[in-house]
C-alpha cells in the first residue's frame, strides 16, 4: 500500500509542472526593508543559488516562502496561486527545509531522524533502517551514529544527517540553507548525486563557490 502510494507520488511529481514566483516582494522586520521589490521565477529542474552578505535577507526569503513571515507587499505564488494559509498547508507537504544549524531535538539519532517520517504527509516515504544506514554510509557517516544522541553530533555530522533526511523524504521542493558549509569535497559530490534531480526545484543559500558553480541560476542579494 505504502509502495503504491510512493509510485503514485513519483508519477505525479513527473507530470507536475511546478513553479514558484516571488513578485515585487518587500518585507521589513522593523522599519527598513530587508527585502525590497524582490522578484524571482523558479520552475522544475532549477537549482537556485542565493548569495549575499550576512543580513542581506537570504534566510528571510526562505521564511517568506515557507509562510513564517508575510510580505509587506508583493506576492509569492506556487503553481500560479498565492500562498494563502490554506494553500500553504498543501505547499509545505511538498517541501523539505534544511536549516544551516539543524536541531532535531533530544534523543538518539535513530529516534529523532525517524520522527518526520511519522507525519501523515511523509508516511509513504518511510525508509527501513537498512536504507537509512546506506544513505548515511554514502554521506560518510559511520553506522554507530545511529545510537548517538543527536545533540552530541558535530556540525558536519548534523549537516550530513540533514542531507540524508532531505534525500529520503523525497520531496519536490528542497530549501537548503548553506548545505555544504561543513562538508568535505567527497561528501559534496554525494550531496549532488543524492539531491540534484530534474524533477525538483532546489532553492539554496550558499557561500560555497563549489555549490554556486552547480546552480542553474544565481541570485545575488548584494546587488538587488
Amino acid at each position: 500500500m505504502e509502495a503504491e502510494k510512493a509510485i503514485k507520488r513519483t508519477l505525479l511529481l513527473f507530470l507536475h509542472t511546478m513553479n514558484i514566483a516571488f513578485s515585487q516582494v518587500t518585507f521589513a522586520y522593523d522599519v527598513d526593508p530587508i527585502i525590497k521589490n524582490f522578484s524571482l521565477k523558479v520552475t522544475k529542474g532549477d537549482v537556485i543559488g542565493i548569495r549575499g552578505a550576512s543580513g542581506s535577507g537570504k534566510t528571510t526569503l526562505f521564511r517568506l516562502l515557507l509562510g513564517f513571515e508575510v510580505p509587506d507587499s508583493g506576492t509569492i505564488t506556487f503553481d500560479g496561486e498565492r500562498l494563502t494559509p490554506q494553500k500553504l498547508k498543501a505547499f509545505r507537504k511538498n517541501t523539505t527545509w534544511l536549516p544551516q544549524d539543524l536541531n532535531l531535538g533530544d534523543g538518539k539519532v535513530k529516534e529523532v531522524f525517524q520522527y518526520p517520517f511519522t507525519f501523515q504527509a511523509n508516511k509513504s516515504q518511510k525508509p527501513d533502517e537498512k536504507k537509512i544506514l546506506a544513505t548515511f554510509d554514502a554521506l560518510g557517516l559511520k553506522k554507530n551514529i545511529w545510537d548517538i544522541d543527536f545533540s552530541n553530533l558535530s556540525t558536519g555530522q548534523r549537516q550530513r544527517v540533514g542531507i540524508a533526511l532531505c534525500y529520503l523524504l523525497n520531496k519536490s521542493i528542497l530549501i537548503l540553507d548553506e548545505p555544504t558549509s561543513a562538508l568535505d569535497e567527497n561528501s559534496k559530490h554525494q550531496v549532488e548525486n543524492l539531491l540534484f534531480d530534474p524533477q525538483r526545484i532546489i532553492l539554496s543559500t550558499s557561500h560555497d563557490p563549489w555549490w554556486i558553480d552547480r546552480c542553474t541560476q544565481i541570485v545575488d542579494l548584494n546587488s538587488t
Binding site: 536549516p99 507525519f119 511523509n122
Partner: peptide, 8 residues
C-alpha cells in the same frame, strides 16, 4: 523545521 517538512 517540522512544519516546513510536511508536518501538520
Amino acid at each position: 523545521f517540522y512544519l516546513a517538512n510536511g508536518a501538520t
